[in-house]
Structures are given as structure tokens and as C-alpha cells.
Design a protein around this nucleic acid. Structure first.
Lengths: 228, 228, 228, 228
DNA sequence: CATGAATGAGGCTTCATTCAT
DNA sequence: TATGAATGAAGCCTCATTCAT
């Protein structure tokens, strides 16, 4: 089941700072705004909140630096906008999970798989979260929009767990939130620390085989834990 | 089983930048070096590699800024020194795990527990890893000392898995490295994103009850997965 | 004898930059121009020529920034327009001085009183003069309209002095211009430096009692000097 | 009685921004600090607080821009330092007034004369006061050192007034503070608005003859007012 | 070993002004 | 007439680092 990247940008970590600015048509506020947001997503995820350069964002977006302030206020506000877009994207993605007609184990496997692949394809989101936690979540705290954004996925897991318990597939009394954090965590660590882990264990964790192995393991762990 | 913090510093995230500089006795190279390293650990973990300020480190350490360069070369070299110290510390900690006389499930539970508590008490290590991965592991790549530092824990897990398979407690064919990454991940995500998760789910994840709940869940997941 | 403020705006120093924009009816050039001029008077007097912000003026006036350029050319030209309006206003006010039927001392007292109150109620004018002198009078130099604007008041003083000399009330050979500068100066300093003087002498110079005392003193000095 | 300019700098208004940087010997903190303060006095008085450029100050002082921040903190703190130095200077000057052996009228004349000449030779002080009042005295308010700096001159005037009343030279019940403000005001306005007044009255108020005439008039007014 | 002054590059932000509609 | 997007220059300030003592 292929999963397209619909994140605000195709940014991924690890690219040096060379850029192909996509000049937006002038006098097209919508496009300009989007270009800035996209460039900012790349820059912030590639270099962190403190490491990101406003000049680089402007250049990447192909707009005048002044526009960043025109549209977003300042660097921190731009970062919040990027975060909100990223959160909105993951919510959208999780909302599309379709478990219609799947058995409880198959449904859980699907959730794990999608989670794994989402992190794989959106490593910039992991980086953004890192910056925001370094900043003690001070941007997100001021945002109403991000709060409880993950509730739907918790609810979905809750339903699958109930169904699985009823069919006898799953153990009982599993907290959906704890489960969600474990599902995420198993995938998250892998991508979050992919560079250091690759060095420390002297393996190329980005290789397709390694990725497939990890994905299979993630499903194994969660289903192994849940089985009655 | 209480676990004391033996990390190079008692640093934890979230502290503002005010500091009580502990002036080392002048003309005491050993102490000066240690003071700088400790201060740097705090500063780097609190503000990230890019966000850390050389001046702040010097002030925190109570030494002249010039000393940082005298002892460590430059900011990046200092960061690497901090990383190496952090890795050395975790290796030391993992080397102390004692599973003598424990059944395989008890041994695994102990590993999970110690891992969870280590991250809990050394959140600065998580922050440092974040910075290093943002930097594409470029410091660690140059370091011989960090490589394969985690091998002992993999070996330990391997032994426990073999024993558990023989006793019939555990499933067979579990890759110790994959297992290690899962054990870590389940705890790691929690502390890595503790600030944003607290906001997004509107819970105080630092509360003792929440921590205890998470720790128990982590053990449940791993043992649940491993059981034959 | 109460004197209403008829200056182009009711601006006075010391107000922070928050504003209630009075949106002029669109398509009403007269009103738009007046709104801009009024807003500019406030902004320039509150923040000085260099400190004034074109954006703030536009916002204050409730018009599009482009209009400032449409109606006035540029910031400097707008400043000159403000200055000219201020000069015109003070000329108008001085032209209204009525000494009909007053004895020479009473007439002089009236001039001093009106001068004092004018400065009191038009402190923005003092501020504008400060900016213009800082700019070495470069705007006013280019303006024909401001030159000799103060001639009428000099002429008036000259007449009173002649009359007073004839009646024996006043000393002879008083230069009306020098007298005018002294009359102005005695009031001017008080308002020009009201903030620093209040701090340096630890008094509230804006208090009604302080103002009344100063006004009486101003009259005393001038009449004391002039008496034969 | 010639009066040398001992102000922190020989700055006077009206000079364009070209500069002869006086490079201080490096590694001479005292000199560096003084050079910055002197350059800042010139720049602030020539262009106002908002119009002054930090770069220009550094260039004028012949030091690296970073030094301004090293020694003074930021632009506002530097401005306060300039103000304090200016106030200290005028206090020093007023403290040197010597009325020993002078009759009360002669003593008052001396005070007026010195005041007039001080303003004449220190027009930068007038400019600085203008900036500070535009800033609502917000710098001076935070300074303990500036408060009541002018008390000595008030005390001096008080003594002369008492003596003059006793000798029958002066009228009674003159408030020394009000008198001081008048003495200052009569000179202050002239220099404060020298550029606009020169234009408005189409005279060269800087000409020696004009200055002498004004000084004589100032003495006349004050003594005329005070005479019994 | 230790200090504090000094540096030049570059950071974020804001300015007055003009363009396209 | 009126609008809001767009611009390039420049403003204040801070950075990691080195020099002179």
C-alpha cells in the first residue's frame, strides 16, 4: 500500500543548504504565503529553530525577506505557522486511515504501518518536534489549533481495541493513549536518531532492507503485545 | 530500586538561563576542564547546539571564555566532548545492569526499567542526541570512542533472549538490536516530546503517577511481545 | 480667559503609540488630506522627525499608506506641510490677540499670558520646532510661507512699547524682537523640558498650581523689566 | 571673561556627518570608553536619539561596533551615559561660578552671562535635552545621578537674592527656581531654535554682534525685573 | 594558566518607498 | 482615488573567535 507524501513540503533531513528557489508569481499572496511556509518548513527542519536563517528561508522561497514579516510577523510566529501546518497534515493523514473490513489485528497492523511510513516520509516533522520541545513547547502552548489534534487517532485505537477484546484477539484493559505512544515511539526513535544510530551501530538504517525489517518488527511488537 | 543520577551534570531541560557559576579554584586544570564540560552539557542540552552560547558556558562554568578554546579547541569540539562524555556515561550505566539470578522475564523487565529511568533522569542526553542528529551526526562520525559503545547492551539482550528461548519463556528469532531499539523507543518518545505531548494531550506527563503508569506499560509491551 | 485648542490636532506629547484611527470617508480627498495631516502632526510631535513612522501615520489616519505619497510626496514634504500648518496656526492665534482698550502693562501681560497658554496647549508645536532645528531648519528654508510669519507679533509688541514709553509706564529703547524672544523663552523652556525638569527638580510641573505660578512669574518678569 | 569649552566634546549642531576618527590606542579601555562617549555625544546631539546611528558612533570613535555594547550595553544605555556626562559637566561648570566680592547685581549678571555662554558653547547639550524630552525623560528617570543635579545653582541664586534684598538692590519674595528657569529660558530659546529663528526672522543669529546683543539683553531683563 | 579587550561577519528586524491592480 | 503586496537598504545587536597582556 503505497503512501504518497502530502506533507506541506517534501523536506527531509540531511540535505545541505543549496536550494532551488521556486519564484512565486508576484502579486499572488496565496502562492507567496505558501512558498514561504514551504521554505520555512524545510529550513527549520534542516537546521532547527535556532539554526534556521531567515535569509535562507526568503531565498528558498524566492521572495523578499520583508515578506516573511508581512505575512507571519517574526521568526517565532513563522515557526508556529510551520508547526501548525505540520500538525494539521498529520491529523489529515491519520483521519484517512481506513480500517473498514479489517480484522482487529489487521487494523492495528495498518495503524502501525501508516505511522511508521509517515515518520519515514516526514522526517521533517520529527525535526520540528525536536525544536519545539527544545523550546519547551512555548509556541504550541500559545496555539489553540494544535491542542487535542491527536484525539481522533486515540479514539480510533480505542475502537479497535474494544473490537479486538470482543473477538478474543486482544488482551483487555489496554489504554489507547499508552498504546499510541508505544506505536509512535517504536517508529519515532528509529528516524529521530537515524544518523547517530547509523554511526553507533555502523549500519545504514536508511537502506530499504533495514526499513522493511524495522517496519515488520514494529508490527510484530505491537501485535505480539496485544494478542490475548 | 532507586537510581541515582550519575550523568556528567544534573542538567535537565526547561531551566531558564540564569546560573550560579561554580568558580573553580584557579590554576586547577582538572577542575577547570570539568567545570567547562559540565556547564557545556547544561547549555547545549538546554538550548541546542546552535542555540548554546559560548559566553553562557563560560559564565556558567565561572571561567574565562578563553579557557574553552584552550581546553577544547572550539565550540564544535566542545560539543563532541560533551557527547562523548554522555555516551560514556550511558555505557557505564548499562554496564552496571545486574541480572544475576533473575529469570529471563525479570531480566528484561529490569532492562526496560533501567532504560526508562535513565531517560527520565537524563533528559539532557535526549536533547544532545537531538542536536547531534540535526547536525547529521557529523561530530560523532569523527569520533572513534563513540562507535559501538552500545554493543554491550545488545550482547546482554542477546544472552537474555537465548536464555528465555531455552526456558520457553520467550519467542524465538528476536533480533536483539531491534528489540533494543523498541525498548528505547517506547521510553524515548515519552521524554523526547514530553513538552509537546503534555500540551497536545493536555496532561502533565511529568507527574509521578503518569511516569509510573508509563513505566509499567513499557514493561508490559516488551514482555507481552516476547512471551512465547 | 480660557483659550481653546485650535491647533490642527489636539496632539500633546507623551502619549504612547496606540491610536484610534478615524477612517475618513473614502473618495473624499479633502478629508483624507486633513486626516493625514492631523495624524502626521501627532506622530511627528510624539516621536520626532526620525522617530516618526510612515506606517504609523497611515494607520493613525486610517488611510492607505500610498495616500501619503499621493498627497504629499514623501516623508520630508509631509513634515514640511505639518510645520507650515503649525506656523499658520500660531500666526492665526497671535493675530487674534485683542488689546483694544488695555493699558500698555495690561496689553503686555495679555501677550505673555497668551504666549504661555499657547505653548501649554500646543506642546506638539514645541516638539516640531525641536525636530526642525535638529534638521538645521532644512525644511523651513525651502518654504516661502513660513518666513516672517512672526512679523505681526513683533509689530504688535512694537506698538505697545511705543505707547508704554509715551505713557511713562515702560522704559525706552526696548527692541521688540529681543523682547519677543524673552517672552517666548520664559514660557518655552518650561514646556520644552517639562519632562526632564520634572525629574531633575522632582516636581510635577504639569500640576495646575505649578502652571499658574509659572504663568504669573512670566508676567512679573516681563513687566518688572519693562517698568520705567 | 572668556569661558573655555570643557564639555565632554566640542560638539555643536549643524555639522554634516563627516568625521575624523581618533583611533584610541588599543588595549586602553579608559581611552576606548572615552572615545565612544565623545563620539556618541556628537552623534546624538547632531542627529537626535532616533537619528543617531550606532555605526556612525563606532566609526567616529574609531572602534569596533561591538565595543559600544561591551562598554555600555545598548544604544539607550549609551545615550543615558552621554546625558549623565553632560549633566555632570554643566554641574561642574556651575559649581565654578565665583561671585566672591561681587555686588548682588553684578553676581546675577555673572550668572546670566555664564548661563548664556554655556548654552552658546554647548549647544549639543540643548540638543540632548531635546531628545530626552521627546523620550519623555525615560532615560533620566532611571538615573539616580542626574536628580537634583541643579540644586547648587538654585542655592546660589537664593543666597544672592537674600543678599540683594538686604542691600535694597532687589525686590523681595523671588522664587530662586522660577528665576533660574527664566534666566535659562531667555538664553535657551535663542540657541534651541537658532536655525528656525534665523530663517523666520531672516537674520544671522550666530553673528558675534547678534550674540552680544542677546547676552546684554538677557542681563537687562533679569536685572530689570529684580531691581527694587 | 588566565584575563578582558577587541574583531568582523552575520543575525533578525524595520524602514521609506514603489509596483501592480 | 485607493489598495496591499513587494522591495532593497539599512538599523541594532550578537555571535564565535582571537589578540595583547
Amino acid at each position: 500500500m503505497p503512501i504518497e507524501d502530502r506533507s506541506p513540503s517534501g523536506a527531509s533531513l540531511g540535505h545541505p543548504r543549496k536550494v532551488q528557489p521556486v519564484k512565486p508569481r508576484p502579486r499572488d499572496p496565496e502562492r507567496t504565503r505558501a512558498a514561504i511556509l514551504d521554505a520555512a518548513t524545510q529550513e527549520f527542519s534542516a537546521h532547527g529553530l535556532e539554526g534556521a536563517r531567515v535569509d535562507a528561508i526568503a531565498e528558498r522561497a524566492g521572495v523578499n525577506k520583508r515578506m516573511l514579516y508581512h505575512y507571519f510577523g517574526d521568526k517565532d510566529a513563522l515557526f508556529l505557522a510551520v508547526l501548525e501546518a505540520a500538525y494539521a497534515d498529520i491529523r489529515r493523514r491519520e483521519g484517512e486511515i481506513d480500517i473498514e473490513g479489517l480484522s482487529p489485528p489487521e487494523a492495528i497492523a495498518e495503524v502501525v504501518r501508516i505511522t511508521f511510513r509517515y515518520f519515514q516520509q516526514n522526517q521533517h516533522f520529527i525535526s520540528l518536534l525536536g525544536s519545539e520541545n527544545l523550546a519547551l513547547a512555548r509556541h504550541v502552548k500559545r496555539s489553540r489549533r494544535v491542542k487535542q489534534i491527536n484525539q481522533p487517532i486515540i479514539d480510533l485505537l480505542g475502537k479497535i481495541l474494544v473490537r479486538g477484546a470482543r473477538t478474543g484477539d486482544f488482551r483487555r484493559n489496554v489504554d489507547p493513549l499508552q498504546l499510541y505512544l508505544s506505536i509512535s515511539g517504536i517508529s519515532y526513535l528509529y528516524f529521530c536518531n537515524i544518523h547517530t544510530l547509523s554511526v553507533v551501530f555502523d549500519r545504514n538504517l536508511k537502506a530499504p532492507a533495514a526499513l522493511a525489517e524495522r517496519e515488520a518488527h514494529a508490527i510484530d511488537v505491537i501485535l505480539g503485545y496485544l494478542r490475548a
